[in-house]
């Protein structure tokens, strides 16, 4: 039995460090957090020690809405990982907070063939040990 997209097993996982830990563990309370500049309010993703907009080093994780839209997607059919059920949807979700602020993710609990660019989506997490991967579902299915 191959695992479905909303399953947490058989995923390659990040190595946690002091820079990325807040992001990958953010979902523990169901909230998505991104690093934000305290000087110019720019969201910085992936996390970095400096704001690429104003070069401030005063950055801190901030809770974001977890809502966005599908900037693009692909239905993957190839069994790169034989343990994972295909087809599945890989998406680029652009978050509402900032233009071009995106996460690569999976769309879950949807018909892969029904996904369209521009669809509204919201975050849900899948737990893999102490890591919470942000996945997304179509907003009207909430």
């Amino acid at each position: 039995m191959r695992v479905k997209m909303n399953d947490s097993s058989n995923r390659m996982l990040p190595q946690l460090d002091d820079t990325n830990r807040f992001f990958w563990q953010s979902g523990k309370d169901g909230k998505l957090r991104l690093l934000r500049c305290e000087c110019c309010a720019h969201y910085v993703h992936p996390p970095a020690p400096v704001c690429s907009n104003c070069l401030s080093t005063q950055l801190s994780p901030q809770i974001v809405s977890g809502k966005g839209r599908v900037a693009s997607f692909t239905v993957n059919h190839h069994p790169w990982n034989p343990a994972v059920e295909t087809p599945y949807v890989i998406a680029l979700v652009e978050l509402d907070e900032q233009e071009n602020l995106r996460l690569t993710t999976n769309l879950v609990d949807c018909d892969p063939e029904s996904v369209r660019i521009g669809d509204r989506v919201s975050v849900r997490f899948t737990q893999c040990g102490d890591i919470y991967l942000p996945l997304f579902a179509l907003a009207d299915t909430d």
Partner: peptide, 12 residues
């Protein structure tokens, strides 16, 4: 996963 791959590969 480290570096940039951590943002892509966890999502198959």
């Amino acid at each position: 996963l480290t570096d940039w791959m951590q943002w892509l590969l966890p999502f198959h």
